[in-house]
């Protein structure tokens, strides 16, 4: 799943969380660098997809009957 480009609001929220003191103009000026850097996330996603383990077709299944009730606190 490729990473969507960040919306300014998303970057503003991150900047606020770390107290970076960035204005809207600052966020705008960081945007190309953030987007350029995040292109590496897509590459990693593609490389990983090419070598990721395949999900087992059948290996166990969810119980069909309700689990046994246990006493509270155990």
């Amino acid at each position: 799943m490729p990473l969507d480009p960040p919306a300014p609001d998303a970057l503003r929220a991150v900047a606020k969380r770390y107290g970076l003191g960035l204005s809207d103009a600052d966020i705008t000026s960081f945007d190309p660098f953030v987007s350029g850097l995040l292109a590496s996330w897509d590459t990693v996603e593609e490389l990983y997809a090419a070598s990721a383990p395949v999900r087992p077709s059948v290996r166990g299944s969810a119980p069909t009957t309700p689990p046994t009730r246990t006493a509270p606190g155990t």
């Binding site: 991150v14 900047a15 970076l20 003191g21 660098f33 953030v34 995040l38």
Partner: peptide, 20 residues
Amino acid sequence: ADGSDFSETVKLVLLAGGYA
């Protein structure tokens, strides 16, 4: 107390990494 003194490169790390 005040994150505004991080360098520009560390701010970039936080923006990109935080978003991701």
